[in-house]
Design a protein around this nucleic acid. Structure first.
Lengths: 132, 132
DNA sequence: TTCCCTGCAAAGCATTTGCACTTTT
DNA sequence: AAAAGTGCAAATGCTTTGCAGGGAA
């Protein structure tokens, strides 16, 4: 996959991709920490560059959960919508199929193609609702 | 509204709130520019502080559209979902009613209350799709 | 040799904080 | 006088860029 484009499979890239898979939801910083637990000396710059590359290659996707840092997750198979609790910060996942009717409608009526693997819905989760 | 909390209605606050209403979708920077067209010398720091305050008071809300800057919009009346084109960056608005079935389902099945006025869907708009 | 990658340091932005000064009550 | 608000400059935090060295094709 990398080879086809004349790119190289380096230890760093491998580790970073693995980290994204392990973490499920990973910010650049999270990835950096995870990688450093295994090998010393991997630079945060490389993490940023690699995540960008992996996204170009379609191996990971990213979403913006709340404020600041983008969150990366493995692409493909397990696409999901994120439910982000703005009270406790927890992230649940959801089958994107639930959104299909909406997406179809947007495509037909507004010619807008929703990137379903990239959706985050903000709100309050059950636990936090109780304790309010 | 401000008075009740011992707070003051200053020209800056007034101008900033007006700017948010005029702009519809406003980043701190956009607000700053808009305000400066009218009066010189309003500091960006004040814009940040005021937007935060206005949000606490429930007069504005903010969403995260794509990368970086939060986008503020007037609270209440015209709640809407944002359709963000990741190709050209355009922002369309949509009636949140389209999402109601999904929200109801999430509430019933996962006890998650979606904040409908805070939703952004990313994807590609009609124009960009054509020119791809 | 050429091209790709990485690390390091520096630069860039957006946002926040500390502090002194001004304004309102 | 006390409390609140503002501006300015500095600090912070995250991300990007430029560049030199190292390694694979």
């Amino acid at each position: 996959m990398l080879r086809e484009r004349g790119l190289r499979l380096t230890p760093q890239r491998q580790l970073i991709l693995e980290a994204v898979h392990e973490l499920g939801h990973a910010t650049p910083e999270t990835v950096h920490n995870a990688v450093r637990e295994r090998v010393a000396g991997v630079n945060i710059t490389t993490v940023y560059r690699t995540l960008e590359l992996l996204e170009e290659l379609g191996l990971v996707n990213h979403t913006h959960l709340s404020h600041g840092s983008p969150t990366y997750h493995p692409a493909g198979e397990d696409q999901h919508v994120h439910l982000v609790c703005r009270s406790c910060g927890s992230i649940e996942e959801m089958d994107p199929a639930v959104l299909l009717p909406v997406c179809d409608r947007l495509r037909d009526e507004r010619s807008f193609r929703v990137d379903v693997g990239h959706v985050s819905l903000f709100g309050v989760c059950g636990k936090c609702k109780e304790s309010e």
